Computed example of a mutant assay.
Amino acid sequence: MKLMRTVLMFILAFLVVSTGTHAEKSPAPRKDADSGKVTIPNSVLDIAKENTYPNSTQDQPYLQPSEFTQELLDTANVKIENPNLIRILNESSINKAPTIGLRATIYLGEWPLNYASTETSPNWEYQKINTNYYDNRGGKGNYQIHYVQEAQKVVKGGLTAKVPHADDVEKMMMIKAMDNSQLPLAFQTIVGAGTKKNQVYNISPKRLGYLYAYAPAINEKGKVTYGEVYLQMKGTKRSVIVKNVTSQGVGAWIPIQDHVHFGFMASEVPR
């Protein structure tokens, strides 16, 4: 795919007048806060301030099309939302000076064009990352424990099956999942060793207490549409044509960044 993009840019260099990069990030339109937003249960706490590993903020990888790019996208027979394809179109502008008899069709390659979400659902116990334990069977009163991360934990997500151009598909799924859930998402998040939370849990006498910590994640499901993209030029007219359109189902796990779900259990016997 990288080779195809390099060749593509080389071809366009002979047919375009460079206008610089217009790939500034712009937030995608967001839904109403009460529409589709995932409700966080009380057992899930934000650890962004306490996390000893500073995760970088993940912005939605949405690119604002330039004026020229938007004109091209409006001519396409299939919706195009792929940020990487938009970036390539943003980087150049075709000269519209009249060219008598100009007729050209340039093959830009096969691309994942858009992603349609059908389900955005949370799994608050996606991956267990820590267990705090205390034996109070010999105690005479309640013993209080709180969360302390014993070892650094890397939590990774990803697509649930192999699909062509996986990186592009992941970016489009991330955009929709963040918009649907209104949560901070990343395909990789890290909880640093020594991260603490002050909320306490009481262990009664004659019991053992277990405080489990889980990294939550969003399960994103939907359909990705692929197609062969062509840039067509006829005189001063420029347009995008998509051929051989196909669709397939796709799913992904995307961890919720800097959030932890806690589960507490007290037992008379070891678990």
Rank of each mutant, 00 (worst) to 15 (best):
T6I: 15
V7W: 15
L15R: 08
V16H: 06
T21F: 10
A23D: 13
A28N: 08
A28W: 08
V44G: 04
D46C: 01
D46F: 01
K49W: 09
E50P: 02
N51M: 09
P54I: 04
P54V: 09
P54Y: 02
Q58W: 11
Q60E: 15
Y62L: 00
F68K: 02
L72D: 01
L72Y: 07
T75M: 09
A76Q: 07
K79P: 01
E81M: 06
N82G: 08
L85T: 03
I86N: 01
I88Q: 10
L89C: 13
R103M: 12
I106R: 02
P112F: 05
N114W: 01
Y115A: 02
W124S: 03
E125L: 05
I129T: 02
T131H: 07
D135V: 11
D135G: 10
R137L: 05
G141F: 04
Q144Y: 15
Q144A: 13
A151L: 10
Q152Y: 03
K153G: 06
K162R: 10
A166T: 09
D167L: 09
V169M: 12
E170N: 11
K176D: 12
N180E: 13
N180W: 04
L183W: 09
T189I: 07
A193Y: 02
A193G: 05
G194P: 06
N202E: 11
S204H: 05
P205I: 11
G209P: 05
Y210F: 12
Y214S: 04
I218R: 01
I218N: 00
I218D: 00
N219C: 08
G222M: 05
G222A: 06
V224L: 10
G227F: 05
Q232Y: 07
R238Y: 12
V245G: 02
V245W: 06
S247D: 14
S247C: 05
G249Y: 13
I256A: 02
Q257S: 15
D258E: 05
H261V: 03
P270T: 11
R271F: 11
R271I: 13
